[in-house]
Design a binder for these strands. Structure first.
Lengths: 152, 152
DNA sequence: CGCTTGCTTGGAGCGCACTCCAAGGTCCTA
DNA sequence: TAGGACCTTGGAGTGCGCTCCAAGCAAGCG
């Protein structure tokens, strides 16, 4: 069964066109990752504390050395954050990934549920857009009315 | 100038197909409004405290009696909330409405900026959707691989 | 009359997602 | 070898948007 899981670390994110170290030298300090992701170093450490990150390599003196796969994971986390998914749910997903291949089904279900949430949120936003456009038209008309009032 | 502002209370929300009292009798208790909007009575009182609501009528004993125009306003607030607009910004908008007709321009600008935000958020969500779909495909493929593994 | 239900107020408390602090160790450059 | 920038930790603090509490008033019912 293990041979079916060459991508078992869940790094199916596809090519990231981000600054990366040349081959093999993918070790970033926390402040480099902060610059690359837009998160603060505080937040990166906090993500680790709450179990949202996989194990992060350390230098011989204990400093974090992030790898490209960690950046990929942070990309995904950033996307999920945009959907409004609570951090606790992302931690749940991270736990499933750590737990191994037997959680594929559960991860799949979680992703599909999230997909539905995103579709619903897009629909909500489009409804809001409609309301906003009606109000904007109203104010545009009111502006024209005031203008013609003034010119009279 | 005032005759151009028959809709100056900003109630341009259009027809609301919600339960309403028959003509003229539009006085709702706080718990009725809570049921209609999905907000709690606590939240409705809090909205009032922070200046997010217009003045709400009171019964002879001091109890709140909401009117249809208040429900319309709460509809708008609900929509804006869906966009992620901070409550403080909505309060700002409410203040502009209370301040009178000379704030039309500012309200117009605020609405247009909000519209742009909504479009940006929709685009973000669609980007997230793309990532999600790629991962979902990955898991579907992995599922199929495992299934064929088992049947072999 | 007592009882229940619903409303009033100011203020305190909560959950989330960070955000920062203090005290100390390490790395780099001159 | 000194100085400053950067890193480490556990724990405390912050801002937002509610959410709830205590104490009390008013209305309706048997």
């Amino acid at each position: 069964m293990t041979e079916t899981t060459s991508a078992s670390t869940d790094t199916c994110a596809g090519p990231r066109p981000r600054d990366r170290r040349p081959d093999g030298e993918d070790r970033y300090t926390i402040s480099e990752v902060a610059a690359l992701t837009g998160l603060t170093a505080h937040t990166l450490r906090w993500y680790e504390r709450i179990g949202l990150m996989p194990h992060i390599d350390r230098s011989h003196t204990g400093q974090r050395r992030y790898r490209n796969r960690d950046l990929d994971w942070l990309d995904l986390v950033g996307k999920l954050r945009l959907t409004g998914m609570p951090v606790a749910d992302m931690v749940r997903y991270a736990e499933l990934v750590r737990a191994g291949d037997h959680t594929y089904g559960e991860r799949f279900a979680l992703l599909k549920a999230t997909r539905e949430d995103v579709l619903a949120r897009i629909a909500e936003l489009q409804g809001t857009l409609a309301v906003l456009d009606r109000k904007i038209d109203f104010y545009a008309d009111a502006g024209r009315a005031l203008a013609s009032e003034r010119s009279r």
